[in-house]
Deep mutational scan, measured.
Amino acid sequence: TSEDEWQCTECKKFNSPSKRYCFRCWALRKD
């Protein structure tokens, strides 16, 4: 669900929880 998505701190895109990197800008997920 969208509620589980995380928001990239670099480009603000919301990504799948299973992705460690942002799909748009490839920044590593910040915990």
Rank of each mutant, 00 (worst) to 15 (best):
W6F: 10
N15G: 06
K19M: 03
L28H: 03
E3V: 05
C22A: 00
F14H: 11
C22G: 01
W6A: 08
Q7I: 08
R24I: 02
R29K: 08
E3D: 08
R24N: 13
S16M: 01
C11S: 01
C22E: 00
R24W: 14
T1C: 02
C25V: 00
W26T: 15
E5F: 09
C11M: 00
C11L: 00
E10G: 06
R29A: 12
F14E: 12
Q7S: 02
D4V: 07
K12Y: 03
L28V: 14
A27Y: 04
R29C: 05
W26L: 13
C25S: 01
F14K: 08
N15V: 10
W6L: 09
S2Q: 15
S2Y: 07
N15D: 10
T1Q: 02
D31A: 07
K13G: 11
K30H: 07
N15S: 10
W26I: 03
T1F: 03
E3N: 05
W6R: 13
K12A: 12
F14I: 11
S16E: 10
Y21W: 04
K12P: 07
Y21R: 14
C11K: 03
R29M: 08
P17I: 01
F23R: 04
S16K: 05
P17D: 14
E5R: 06
K13I: 07
R24C: 09
T9W: 03
E3A: 05
E10K: 04
A27W: 02
R20I: 14
Y21F: 13
S2R: 10
C8M: 01
S16W: 05
R20W: 12
K13T: 08
R29I: 04
C11R: 03
F23I: 12
A27H: 08
R24V: 01
E3Q: 01
W26E: 15
L28F: 10
K30T: 12
C11V: 00
R24P: 10
Y21V: 12
K13A: 11
S16A: 13
R24L: 10
S2M: 05
E5V: 08
C8A: 01
F23Y: 12
R20T: 15
C25R: 00
